[in-house]
């Protein structure tokens, strides 16, 4: 097996596994049951999407995709922080107006 074949095979397997993982985390987002579960699954979804972009970078040989992956990680972190603050503030607002 030449290195090029190995890269092609490994990236295909990785993309399949990541696709399955994305599907599972979408199931958790739909099922819930609490808002926290959904936010957690969304957080995992951005990490998985980052992995997907990394696998595409390896498959195509375009390392520019790596920057996209890192930006996606940053975006996922900020989104989770914002959601956590929203969950906290919703609690406070709900208490003021029952």
């Amino acid at each position: 097996m030449t290195p090029a074949d190995a890269v092609s095979l490994a990236s295909t397997i990785a993309l399949l596994l990541l696709g399955l993982a994305l599907l599972l985390s979408v199931v958790r987002i739909v099922v819930g049951p609490t808002l926290g579960d959904r936010v957690l699954a969304l957080d995992l979804l951005t990490v998985l999407a980052m992995g997907f972009v990394g696998a595409v970078a390896i498959r195509t040989g375009l390392t520019l995709y790596l920057d996209i992956a890192i930006a996606l990680a940053l975006l996922g972190f900020l989104a989770t922080v914002a959601f956590a603050r929203y969950i906290l503030s919703r609690r406070v607002a709900g208490k003021q107006q029952p």
Partner: peptide, 22 residues
Amino acid sequence: YAGCVLLVVGALFCLLAAVGVI
């Protein structure tokens, strides 16, 4: 070859994370 192994193992861990979340 090492990169290919790392890629597949990493994808496997991602899948296990998703299975765990389910």
